[in-house]
Design a protein around this nucleic acid. Sequence first.
DNA 1: CTATTATGACTGACCAGTCAGTCATTGGAG
DNA 2: CTCCAATGACTGACTGGTCAGTCATAATAG
Lengths: 200, 200
Amino acid sequence: MSPRRVDKTARRQQILDAAVRVFARRGFAASRIEDVAAEAGIAKGSVYMYFGSREEILRAAFEALASAMDRLLEGALSGTGPALARLDALIRDVLASIAAAPDLARVLLDLWGSGRDGDGLPLDMAETYGRYRAAVAALLAQAAAEGEARPGVGEAEATVIVGAIEGCVLQWLIDPRVPIGELAEPLAAVCLHGVRGRDA
Amino acid sequence: MSPRRVDKTARRQQILDAAVRVFARRGFAASRIEDVAAEAGIAKGSVYMYFGSREEILRAAFEALASAMDRLLEGALSGTGPALARLDALIRDVLASIAAAPDLARVLLDLWGSGRDGDGLPLDMAETYGRYRAAVAALLAQAAAEGEARPGVGEAEATVIVGAIEGCVLQWLIDPRVPIGELAEPLAAVCLHGVRGRDA
DNA sequence: CTATTATGACTGACCAGTCAGTCATTGGAG
DNA sequence: CTCCAATGACTGACTGGTCAGTCATAATAG
């Protein structure tokens, strides 16, 4: 066998994919580097050729997730058409994107729990989610200017909407019987109705 | 059988309070039993007189939180008046109750992440949140029957509402600058508007 | 033959849980 | 009331096991 032929970036990705699978199964705290190595089909020591530490793997997983979300956000912000329609599409896209990568989604639970003081890893989750809220708030402000959203909606409503999305994901992560696929429609409906003016 | 020094229940509570403070600060995974003991002002060994294991402490914290929520739910379900008004009050009460106990709220992050297969602790979070969703769904069904909510709202919308509450808490846990106190109003507004019929 | 990549045995730190012993309190005997 | 034996809450050094990260060695490519 010659796994030596694989190029650096591909091998790094292979380890990251394996790590996400393992973290999803047992949680970050209970996942040993050896488990990750075994899942990737390589030896423990080799992992350290591509990642400096156990936590760096988690950080890389976070970055993958965050950059996927950033791409969706970027699209919604720079798109054309009524702002509320773009918010509608954004909500559905984000939910679909998360639902499509269940393992990565499960790692979210560890990510959310990792922003603690002390030796916690510096993931700056606060900055990332702040950006998400700002993007939704911008969309909401546009919608208000276009007369589609009730006047006065802003930061607070953006927090509620971002929270509602994350909350639906959370419900699904806690209880896999929650049908995440069927949640996009009612989620978008509640958020949009909740933010619209008096016209149904 | 009079207690020797401090009564058993009080000491257990003292340890639990200390544990919640420590878990909130460093996270469950990084919290050593010795830290909890030190915070409670007792020796490590004494902790094991009141809790069988490290995880049993976490389970006790979960039960305290869950029973507080159950009380609010019970009140909303058995109350009088329009169902939608009771849902409005429930949303505000739950958020206020969580915001009032920030340390306990932070432990939520660990709790959410602990429902994994393998050696995970059997907290049956799924059952608990399922009950919350069912309660909100019942309120929604009543509201629909009273003509206040649009017909057809049900389980899915209940999931969105429960998720939105948890999501707002999550935003605040990730970024303490999020003003949880000022979120009750817009959260209730979005949820209620999002579920109401065509009348604003 | 050299450089590069991979390996897995090893080490040192860390910590959950244990248990043999301590000592303040208590209740009863003198 | 005093004294002392019984009690059991409390202690913390210790054990056994785990695991992140290292590094001397081996395998392979060029």
